[in-house]
Computed example of a mutant assay.
Amino acid sequence: MSEQLTTAPPGVATTAIRRPRRRGGSLAMPYLLLVLPVGLVCLALGYPLVRQFIMSFQEFGLAQQFGQPPEWVGLANYQQVLTDPYFWVVTARSVAFCAVSAGLTMVIGIAFALLLQKVSPVPRVVLQITLVLAWAMPPISALTSYVWLTEPRYGVVNWILTSMGLDGFENFSWLAGNQWTFFGVASTTVVWTSVPLVTLMTYAALNQVDEEVVEASQLDGAGWFARLRHVVLPMIRPVILLVTMLEIIWDLKVFTQINVLQGVAGNNRATNLLGTYVYEVGIGGGEYGIASALATVMLLLVLLLTWRYMRTLMKQGDL
């Protein structure tokens, strides 16, 4: 470390002030530490995204998988996708499924978070452990349980309903019966796996709310619902917006739950969502160019639906 003497008036002793030496390496270290993770993310996500975008302008089928050079077709794949009436049916179905599932997830998750604040410590810990276990359960295991519950002949759901005198549910197939019951079961599985994360994140945000502000609103005569609507929820709004944005992304591109339940029901065309439709066209049909165009349109749809939430978060300085 270098020492510099300060100039002092006559009769006043001078003291040595140590100043740290600025090193260029220390300034560059944070950026160097970011190189590896950013590079891995770009490699894992950037390359497939670029490859998908390029393939969406090519005729890429099974022949290209065996070495034949792909042929550039311009916007032909997009034209075929956007002029296909079935694509718009699947898109509308996916948006509706996303709206219902994400909406139910947010309502139930916030309600559970508020419940966690009201219960005593022991039930709170039990509920938190239960939520974590439900969230950590592999989706295939949860789906297997739902298939058993809704099995036409021996399922618990039909047994309970018929025991209540509802004879119309005897040997009723919830998955192969019609679209509404299929998506009812599918939405239940999606909500089941998503509610724990929403609950825990919302509960963590609620614990950061200033109790003095809530008590002041209570002294002003605000009831419980008024305090929740005008004080508590606005204070945790950034967290709710972030979780809502994540839920929209996850539920719009849901694949595992729909694909597994379709394997049981056997009615793919009537129950396809965008995720399973892209898989069916690409992996099932070998039309990788069209599937890439579908995936690109799906990505643009996700960005369109979540842009409002992203813009709000950026205005608040959270992104």
Rank of each mutant, 00 (worst) to 15 (best):
G67K: 05
P85T: 03
W224H: 11
Y309G: 05
M298E: 02
C42W: 15
I108G: 02
R311I: 04
L5N: 04
G11N: 05
L252F: 15
A92M: 12
G263P: 06
S173K: 11
L75H: 03
G103F: 04
E59F: 00
T6P: 01
F172R: 02
W224F: 10
E71W: 00
D318V: 14
T188S: 12
L175A: 01
M245L: 14
S292Q: 05
G266N: 09
T130R: 02
C98D: 12
L273D: 04
S194F: 14
L133Q: 03
R269W: 03
I283D: 09
T7M: 07
Y31C: 07
S292M: 02
Q68G: 05
V12T: 13
A265L: 05
W307F: 15
F53V: 09
S163V: 07
D167W: 01
A222D: 11
V122D: 07
W174Q: 01
V191Q: 01
R19Q: 08
E59H: 00
G165H: 02
W180E: 12
V50I: 14
W174L: 02
V126C: 09
L241G: 08
N77F: 00
H230C: 14
F255V: 09
Y279C: 06
L219E: 08
G61E: 10
S163L: 08
C98N: 13
I236P: 03
I129F: 15
G177Q: 07
G103T: 04
Y146D: 05
G221Q: 07
G275A: 12
G11S: 07
G39Q: 09
R18M: 06
Q117W: 01
E212F: 07
G282K: 00
V41I: 13
L274D: 07
A76I: 07
V297C: 13
W224T: 14
A134L: 15
G168P: 00
K118P: 01
V209I: 08
M55K: 11
M235V: 14
L131P: 00
A102H: 10
A222Q: 09
L299A: 12
